[in-house]
Structures are given as C-alpha cells and as structure tokens.
C-alpha cells in the first residue's frame, strides 16, 4: 500500500461504499460549521469593532443582530454578477473559486481533538504551509484577470506581501518543529502536554501572529485592499457571489490561521492545566475557545492600529522578522542540543 492507495483506494476502490459516505459526512461536518462560523465571524467583527469604537454595530436584524449575516448573504446572492468587458473571462471566474477552495481544503488536516481529524497525514504542517502559500494565486489571478489598474496594483502588493511573510512563517514553524520532531499536527499538540510552546517560544508566538495578519491581508497589513488608495484592491471588479467567495475565503483563512496558531503554540485541544475541573471540559471546546481568543485578537488589532506603509511592511518582514526568526532557529537548536533535549525519532 503506498501513500495514495491508503487514501485514494480506500475511498474509491474499496468494496464497501459506506466508507465513502462516512468521508463525505465528515467533510460536511467540518465545512458546514466552518461556513456558519465564517458568517458569525463577520457579525462578531462588526459588533466588536463597533463596541470598541463606542458604536452599537448591527443590532437590528433578529435578536442582537444575530440574523444579520443571513441578511447579508441574501443581499449578495440577489445582486447582479458583473463581468468587466476587458476581463479575461475564464481566469476572472476561476480566481474566487481558487481562493474559496483553498480556504476549505486546508481544514482536512486540522485536529479538533485527539481523534477528530479528517486525515492524519504525517506531513500535516507542510500541507498547511503549502495550501497557505497557494492562496496567493487566487489574489494575483483575480487582479490580473480583472484588467483594471486598481485590481492589478492590489494583487501585486498582496503577492509580494504574502511571499515575504511566508519566509518568516516557515522559519518560525521550523523552530517549533525542532521541539517536536514530527510534522504531524497531532504530534505537535501532544508534545505540548507539559507546557504550551507559547511560553518557551513566546517571541515566536508573537511573530507568528503578526505574520498571519500579513498572510491573511488583515489590518494593519491590509494594503492589498487599502480602500483609501486602491478602492478595494484585487477584488474591486467583483460583485455578487464571486465577491462573496472572496469574502468567505478571506474569513475562512483567518479562522484557519488562528487554528494553526492554536495548534503550534497554544496546545490545540489540551486544557491549560491537566487538573480536575479543567480536564472535564471536552478537548474540542478548548480548541474552539482558543481559536475564538486568537480571532478576537485579529479584530482587536484591526480596531486599534493604523495601516502600515508599504515600505514599512517590507522592512518589518525582511529586516526584522527574517533575521530574528533565523537567529531563533539557531538558538533553539543549540539550546536543545546543549541540554540533550532534542526529540528522539525512530
């Protein structure tokens, strides 16, 4: 049995069709809650930022404005889809799909609990890293296919920004992997049983969070959409459902990166301390609470910080984060080597 057969054959080739149905049900069990959380994340964002700015935010549709996301979705669906005349039709249509699909497929390897993971592959971290590095294509193809200067400028900014911050994200991940000795996400969480990596690797945790802000094009690094100079950046020409796909993809990516942060640094589904009242709470709930905390940080940052200038953004990425994370990798490796704490593998 090779790698593909294990996954592919068991799905398509095996005699019992029940396995296929189970996998599809599992996928639905991940995707549907994800889409609902995306909907409520948009509401949470508007409410939280509203409260931080001493406004009320959307509170009219339904109790506490809870039906607002559905009203927004209905509005978007009823809008007209506009295809710009000079646009490259095929690429214009496919770009939002790429963004959305990439935001969803990454969830296949996220462990929600010790056993709750769709596919427990042994290169989970690399898979997540690969999918998040592909996300730039949705943006850059959208910007080019729109045949509009604003969209193109937004796409170029975004591409350069995402590629730059991926470098430091990669190095930060390496310093975590040095402490774990495995690329499997479940192993990474289990390695944090004694202490969450956020404590020994605190600077890396902060830098990883900032890099994910840049990677997801969120404030204060939201230059690709900078509405004051580029109108809306790469998706300026999109309307209706194609815009909604970008929107969903962006927020799903936010949740994904939060989950990634939680798995790498905040001990995934593990309780803060393995003591009586805390370990009664199911692991999945801990995971959700931690993800919500990171998402709150995303919103908090957006409400409180002004946007970076582009050269400042590049300076931060290449001249501060890259050398610092590189030094930290060497430091972690030397420390582990010195105290003979390197993980023993096979």
């Amino acid at each position: 049995m090779n790698f593909v057969e294990q996954f592919g054959l068991s799905v398509f080739g095996s005699n019992d069709i029940s396995f296929l149905i189970v996998v599809i049900l599992k996928i639905l069990a991940i995707v549907l809650p994800l889409l609902i959380s995306v909907a409520y994340l948009t509401l949470a964002e508007r409410r939280v930022i509203g409260l931080m700015q001493l406004r009320k935010g959307p509170n009219i549709v339904g109790p506490f404005g809870l039906f607002q996301p559905f009203a927004d979705a209905l509005k978007l669906m009823s809008k007209e889809t506009i295809m710009p005349t000079g646009a490259n039709k095929f690429l214009f249509v496919i770009a939002p799909m790429i963004t959305f699909v990439l935001a969803l497929i990454a969830w296949a390897v996220i462990p929600f609990d010790e056993k709750n993971v769709l596919s427990d592959i042994n290169v989970g971290v690399l898979y997540l890293f690969a999918v998040s590095s592909l996300a730039v294509y949705g943006v850059i193809i959208a910007g080019w296919a729109s045949n509009s200067k604003y969209a193109f400028l937004g796409a170029l900014r975004s591409a350069a920004q995402m590629v730059s911050y991926e470098v430091s994200i990669g190095l930060i991940i390496i310093s975590v992997l040095l402490c774990v000795g495995s690329l499997n996400l479940t192993d990474i969480v289990l390695a944090q049983k004694t202490v969450w990596f956020a404590i020994p690797l605190l600077p890396m945790f902060v830098m990883f969070f900032i890099s994910t802000l840049a990677e997801t094009n969120r404030a204060p690094f939201d230059l690709p959409e900078g509405e004051s100079e580029l109108v809306a950046g790469y998706f300026v020409e999109y309307s209706s459902m194609s815009f909604a796909l970008f929107f969903l993809g962006e927020y799903a990516n936010m949740i994904l990166m939060s989950a990634f942060t939680v798995i790498l640094f905040l001990g995934g589904w593990l309780p803060p301390f393995d003591i009586y009242p805390l370990n009664l709470v199911p692991g999945f709930l801990w995971f959700v609470i931690k993800v919500c905390f990171i998402l709150f940080l995303f919103l908090w940052v957006r409400a409180t910080t002004p946007r970076y200038r582009y050269d400042q953004l590049m300076r931060l990425g290449w001249k501060i984060f890259l050398p610092f994370s590189l030094c930290w990798v060497v430091l972690t490796a030397s420390f582990l080597m010195l105290f003979d704490m390197l993980p023993k593998s096979v």
Binding site: L126, Y127, F129, A130, S133, L134, V136, E166
Partner: peptide
C-alpha cells in the same frame, strides 16, 4: 509538499 511549497508557492 516541498515541491508545492517551493516551486508553486
């Protein structure tokens, strides 16, 4: 995965 990260990404 490395091929995707390095070449495609």
């Amino acid at each position: 995965m490395l091929l995707i990260v390095v070449y495609v990404g």
